[in-house]
């Protein structure tokens, strides 16, 4: 019995993993090859074909209140999504690595100071902090990207600091140091490679969070500016047409949920697989 359940579970896990990976590959393809997948322009309006339901007149997912093709808008919406995700996670990772290694390797006052700063940032709710940063920097895609990068620095900084501290006390590092290896070399050769699994897993999960918060900011009108396609903005625009044209809300919503699920699932899986200790 137990074995059968476990096998069934493994099967479901594999299926999820497969679907998530395929979906994410599809997103990547959609972002690079938007023009191949989308039959219409994401921004050109067609006021004679407003609020068409799905599968009518060649519109797979219907049209919105200004007659724009929803499928095309979703496809083109992957581009800003992946760009913001990648760059924000990049900023967060770079900042986190720098802060984390500095704090972990130097210890003492530097450590206390950096971690105090990080805890300070962490004590704000993420979305609120992102809104604050955006209102200081101004509205728009670039600003949102930077804001989200800054917001997630502490997450990486804490992870990197903890890893650095524990690695530096281990036997092989001690012996390597005894053999005369320079400190930067130790970091590069022993410390960094060892924390890669955790960083990869954390990046994937953070990516999912960035996607959600970007959508929230666009929903609030702070992110992507109309008429550029963004899933969050599409959800915002759909709000007034919920009874008339539910497809305006459903499709971008499903796409967003699936993206977040896939990234989360992949993140969990990677952290399980890449880390032999767990």
């Amino acid at each position: 019995m137990r074995i059968r359940i476990r096998r069934k579970r493994q099967k479901i896990q594999k299926l999820f993993l497969f679907t998530s990976t395929v979906y994410l590959c599809f997103l990547l393809f959609a972002a690079f090859g938007s023009s191949y997948l989308a039959p219409h322009s994401p921004t050109i309006q067609d006021l004679n074909h407003r609020l068409l339901p799905p599968l009518t007149e060649g519109r797979i997912l219907g049209t919105d209140d200004l007659g724009r093709d929803i499928w095309s808008r979703i496809v083109y919406g992957t581009r800003p999504l992946l760009i913001i995700g990648t760059i924000s996670v990049g900023i967060a990772l770079a900042g986190g690595l720098l802060m984390g290694i500095l704090a972990g390797a130097m210890g003492g006052i530097v450590d206390s100071f950096i971690m105090l700063l990080m805890d300070g940032i962490l004590s704000f709710p993420t979305v609120l902090l992102a809104i604050t940063v955006v209102s200081v920097l101004g509205y728009g895609l670039g600003q949102v990207t930077v804001a989200l990068g800054i917001v997630f620095i502490p997450v990486f900084a804490r992870l990197v600091r903890a890893e650095t501290k524990s690695r530096l006390t281990e036997g092989y590092v001690e012996s390597s140091r005894a053999l005369g290896t320079s400190f930067p070399m130790i970091l590069l050769r022993h410390v960094l490679p060892n924390m890669m699994p955790d960083i990869i897993a954390q990046s994937t999960v953070t990516f999912a969070l960035v996607v959600v918060i970007e959508a929230s900011l666009s929903f609030l009108g702070l992110g992507t500016q109309p008429p550029e396609p963004s899933w969050g903005l599409m959800l915002k625009e759909s709000r007034n047409f919920l009874y008339q044209a539910p497809w305006m809300a459903i499709f971008p919503g499903v796409a967003l949920a699936a993206t977040v699920f896939s990234f989360n699932y992949l993140g969990d899986y990677l952290s399980e697989q890449l880390n032999p200790i767990r």
Partner: peptide, 23 residues
């Protein structure tokens, strides 16, 4: 906001580029 996007496209057609900012 809806009207603004329609104006934007109408102006685009006569060769005026308009950038929208929501506040």
């Amino acid at each position: 906001v809806r009207a603004g996007q329609i104006y934007q496209e109408m102006l685009q057609k006569v060769g005026l580029t308009v950038k929208i900012r929501l506040v």
